[in-house]
């Protein structure tokens, strides 16, 4: 199927995510190195707070000139997070393995480039929260 692509696919990160047929969109290109966790120096976790799929991330200093000194993957994450975004979305849009995105986001939070809304991990057993979700969904048309 390779000949169908508009440009050479560089999916060294998540080869199983290759989009046959719809490839070629520039935002679908992978960033990264030969193996997923090379980007994280082999780390699969950081010391910081728990980062989940839905954890909201935003850039603290979107126009920080120092961002340009960061490695490409880090720059791409900061650029995406001008508006709050979930880690799952970062992972999908940059085609980074979720585990890799989580480590890089943790690093960027530790270095002050990103804000994590980690204090607001919702309590799934809070009846009031569940009621708010129910009311919100009922309003969907």
């Amino acid at each position: 199927m390779k000949h169908e692509r508009d440009e050479p696919e560089r999916t060294r990160v998540r080869p199983f995510l290759a989009r046959h047929g719809s490839a070629g969109r520039s935002d679908r290109r992978s960033v990264g190195g030969p193996r997923p966790f090379v980007l994280t120096s082999g780390r699969v976790a950081t010391d910081g707070p728990y980062i989940g799929l839905e954890t909201q991330v935003s850039a603290r200093y979107p126009n920080d000139p120092a961002v340009s000194l960061l490695p490409a993957e880090h720059r791409a994450i900061v650029a995406l997070c001008a508006e709050p975004l979930s880690v799952a979305e970062i992972s999908a849009r940059l085609r980074l393995h979720f585990g890799v995105a989580r480590v890089l986001v943790g690093d960027l939070a530790a270095s002050g480039h990103l804000d994590l809304r980690s204090g607001a991990i919702s309590d799934p057993h809070d009846p009031d929260l569940i009621m708010r979700v129910i009311r919100g969904l009922r309003a969907l048309k």
């Binding site: 799929l53 839905e54 954890t55 909201q56 991330v57 935003s58 850039a59 603290r60 200093y61 979107p62 508006e83 709050p84 979930s86 809304r117 607001a120 919702s122 799934p124 929260l129 979700v133």
Partner: peptide, 12 residues
């Protein structure tokens, strides 16, 4: 720093 844009609370 950006003026506080509060991200929504995520539930899933």
């Amino acid at each position: 720093p950006r003026p506080g844009i509060q991200p929504p609370m995520p539930v899933k």
